[in-house]
Design a protein around this nucleic acid. Structure first.
Length: 306
DNA sequence: ACGAAAGCCGCCCATCC
DNA sequence: GGATGGGCGGCTTTCGT
């Protein structure tokens, strides 16, 4: 739909002009989109540039009309898994988020990958190779005495979470226990050192580009922060939430929307679920087949209030 | 308290069917 | 000609100082 403004066709106007975008008197750019077959609109936010507002519009357009829509950036259309099922409030949130995200890696690159992952998942229950971003992820360095390390190649796993747990057979008894490959004993708390976030929650938090797999033992703000820094299609094994055990009212998790947009998988683990394997484990411990190596970072106690 | 910015809404009008 | 949807302008609300 061609709209004329101030007597000039859009193409002749000096300002960059994008669909669904307009300029405020004071120079800011705002974006809003109408719901299909409705007079209602979704407010997409206010931005400092027309491009950002246009990106927000494109994301909303993709959510409402799919990939066949005419985008402001047809060369770089958004591609968001599950976008068509988002509510207006979620569309608003996703659009604002991607409008403000750095454009150096296109949204289509970013989400095409996710989409291909989800598609391959849907098509095949079998594990398959996944995105480059995951392949580039840092390895996890917790090792058993079998010296089974989770190298990046072993993180290239795209089956359902339990498939990953149950079928990767990097040691001759990891599958027997039905636990993570390379993790022979999960009954103690341990945190791969590369995954421990800096708890100042600031810009300097170092997650090495995102977290692939996180073993949840803390809960509360820690979990909240971790969810925000998970990579798309990351996995969280919830083994405990010690920070919540003595609270009268459990803390809420405010970043759950990331579970949707990043297609995260969270699976709880209770030791009693593996009771039937206890005898076997004890036997192996006696034979000293099992031991656990981990990284201990001293000094945590010094952070407690005096 | 006041001004600026954001959010929301009504209306206009071009385009599509 | 009605439905749809992009754009404009203005009113209200929110936020920062």
């Amino acid at each position: 739909m061609v709209k004329y403004s101030a007597g000039k066709p859009i193409a002749e106007r000096r300002d960059p002009k994008f669909k669904g975008v307009r300029k405020r008197k004071w120079g800011r750019w705002v974006s809003e989109i109408r719901l299909p077959n409705s007079r209602e609109r979704i407010w997409l936010g206010s931005y400092d540039s027309a491009e950002k507002a246009a990106r927000a519009f494109d994301v909303a357009l993709f959510c409402l009309r799919g990939r066949v829509a005419k985008f402001n950036f047809p060369d770089n259309p958004p591609n968001i898994a599950g976008a068509r099922s988002l509510s207006p409030a979620e569309i608003q949130e996703v659009a604002a988020k991607f409008a403000n995200s750095e454009p150096q890696r296109s949204q289509s690159d970013q989400f095409e990958t996710n989409q291909s992952v989800s598609e391959s998942r849907a098509e095949s229950p079998c594990p398959s190779v996944v995105s480059e971003s995951r392949a580039e992820s840092p390895c996890t360095s917790v090792v058993s005495d079998e010296t089974v390390q989770l190298e990046s190649s072993e993180l290239r796993w795209d089956g359902p979470f339990l498939d990953m747990l149950m079928t990767t057979n990097s040691s001759n008894y990891s599958a027997e226990y039905g636990i993570f490959p390379g993790f022979d004993d999960l009954h103690n708390d341990f945190f791969p050192s590369s995954l421990i976030p800096n708890l100042d929650y600031g810009e300097e938090t170092n997650f090495d580009g995102g977290i692939d797999i996180y073993f949840e033992n803390v809960g509360g703000k820690m979990l909240d922060e971790v969810i925000m820094h998970m990579k798309p299609h990351g996995r969280i094994a919830a083994c405990g939430m010690i920070s919540q055990y003595n609270l009268e009212e459990p803390e809420g998790i405010h970043s759950m929307f990331n579970v949707v947009v990043k297609s995260l998988e969270i699976k709880g683990f209770v030791e009693t679920d593996f009771k039937h394997r206890r005898k076997c484990r004890v036997k192996r411990k006696r034979r000293k087949c099992i031991s656990v190596c981990g990284s201990i970072i001293p000094g945590l106690e010094t952070q407690l209030p005096t």
